[in-house]
Write a protein that binds this DNA or RNA. Structure first.
Lengths: 336, 336
DNA sequence: TTGAAAGCGCTAACAC
DNA sequence: GTGTTAGCGCTTTCAA
């Protein structure tokens, strides 16, 4: 298998020096129209493909932005990455994506791998990381952006929101409808730190109102699936049948809960109110529609992209951008 | 901002040559235990991070596998990429991911960008590409794997299935239940070529049985959303109320159709049968569960990974691996 | 406008 | 076991 042609090959074919080829590959280079044409023709003939690796080494700029998400298989994270990727791609930057599986140890490994590629910035989901991971990121001396969270001790920039505060909004909504016996369905590990934050927010919001927050259904390790949401609701209907409302850690589990109600002949919202998180498409299509929280994933991605693209002009101060989530009231909680 | 430390810096600090550092960074290198320890300590002190870019240039191996999908925001593609990424990551290969937006022109641009990174193989979704895209891939002289399809003129390896044939399975299922007035809901462009293939397969299957296939609802450009599925069903109920069954291009639109039936008081499957494609989680959770086709996305990803990892040992012949989809009968079509 | 030389950080090959 | 040399493909710098 012959090795792919290099600039040297193109130069020889075009009868010019490699430098002229290099200049001709760029837009602005000062090259005579004739030389440029000859180079273009030679490159086409040879099937020349520019080698970004070599250019990166010389320029000490890779054009990579490392991004970690808990999982690819989640519309919220996919939306964020999509928005980020589009905005960065327009400026010639490329996303280098990795999934942590909701596990800080795997995040640490992943970040280590990604840093070897010399990314120009790192975008992380969440604000919880191992000590070694924090250390690596600090030493990398590149912009770090934590998202989907408002960490107390951020590594750098932050684009996020308070997961706990969203539950205050939701509990407020439910109690305003006269519902007080409220359950929470989520994971029973702290692996999904944002989910755990929402559970904490739920507990705090209930405590603030003097309501008992002892209806907690833990469904194992994240991500909590639709099926697990359905199972949780089935358990709840048996074990705590006087429950009036259920807040689920995500719309996916909330939809599962909704389905379990449908199967059990429990009317939503009359017999049971159901709320989710995430404003996934399903929330606006299912019957009844789901009351949920929209965290504006693509706004988070777009804001992160803006921070990255502005890194040269306004380098120093760490930004803390809050993207305020919105309560979306659907048919799964009672009308006023 | 100080430049990150290089092997030279580590070598100086450890009192050895760069070559010894290089050897100490690998597992197998022949380095004395003492030197290895000194290098390790120096590297830790300096916060040294191995520069994969430079090593790649020297080794002429990047460790990148380029992967294109229509969109990240799709559980089927996310599953495929996840399986691929896990299998490749275990061997030190990294996925370089890009989204085409269901657009061959954008795929062409994307492939051009990705090839500049010198990937060691390319995994594409689908078998339709622009002429220039095919040309670039042919000239790149690296393994190319097309997935989710069985192209007539593949570029290289293939891991997929016949989208058209899945619709034969589905039409067979519906007619065996005595349903003959069957509609198809999908896009009305050819951008989603796999969706278009399924529509062709539907038309052929109907023709084969002498059934009229004139109940086609086109909902615009892909991806067809849950909402569009709901809108399509709403239209169908008005415009062709005697329709007995609807096949939707994906489970997402099928779920939308299901919701529209629920809203309209149409009983599924008694008054209307609904079928989807993809075996998304929602299909097994919604009420009733959806009859669908499981294309085994992670099997596709795993098979592609195997082809890539075996590229050295069994280089030449192009493989054509069929991952046979399975009909999953749910409650949205009538029991026998 | 064009070219020659030097070097980005790393490693294969070959000394010793 | 360790060091020296050369060079991967590109671009900056400087000279013509």
């Amino acid at each position: 298998m012959p090795r792919p042609p290099t600039m040297k090959d193109v130069a020889r074919a075009a009868g010019v020096s490699v430098m002229t080829v290099s200049r001709a590959m760029k837009d602005g280079g000062s090259v005579s129209a004739e030389a440029r044409a000859r180079v273009g023709a030679a490159a086409r003939d040879l099937g020349y493909v520019f080698d970004a690796t070599a250019a990166n080494l010389r320029l000490q700029r890779t054009g990579f932005i490392a991004v970690t998400v808990p999982t690819l298989n989640n519309a919220n994270f996919a939306d964020m990455v999509g928005a980020l990727s589009r905005a960065l791609g327009a400026e010639g930057l490329q996303v280098l994506l990795g999934a942590t599986g909701y596990d800080v140890a795997q995040e640490e490994r992943l970040v280590g791998q990604l840093l070897r590629r010399r990314p120009e910035a790192v975008v992380l989901t969440g604000g919880s990381h191992t000590a070694h991971c924090r250390d690596m990121l600090a030493k990398a001396a590149i912009p770090v952006i934590e998202t989907w969270d408002l960490p107390d001790e951020p590594l750098g920039h932050v684009v996020g929101f308070s997961n706990a505060a969203t539950m205050e909004m939701m509990v407020q909504h439910l109690t305003s409808r006269g519902l007080h016996r409220i359950a929470f369905v989520g994971g029973d590990t702290n692996q999904d730190t944002r989910g755990a934050d929402r559970k904490r927010g739920f507990l705090a919001a209930m405590a603030r109102r003097g309501l008992a927050a002892d209806r907690l259904i833990g469904m194992g390790a994240p991500p909590i699936s639709m099926r697990q949401g359905a199972d949780a609701m089935a358990r709840l209907l048996v074990e705590m049948p006087d429950t009036q409302a259920v807040i689920c850690v995500s719309d996916l589990s909330a939809f599962g809960a909704l389905s379990a109600c449908a199967r059990a002949g429990v009317r939503v919202p009359d017999d049971m109110a159901v709320a989710g998180f995430g404003a996934y498409e399903i929330a606006s299509v299912c019957v009844p529609t789901l009351t949920t929280i929209d965290p504006f994933p693509s706004a988070i991605g777009a804001a992160a992209a803006r921070l990255i693209l502005a890194r040269d002009t306004m380098d120093q101060p760490f930004q803390r951008i809050e993207v305020t989530p919105r309560l979306v009231i659907g048919g799964s909680t009672p009308a006023r």
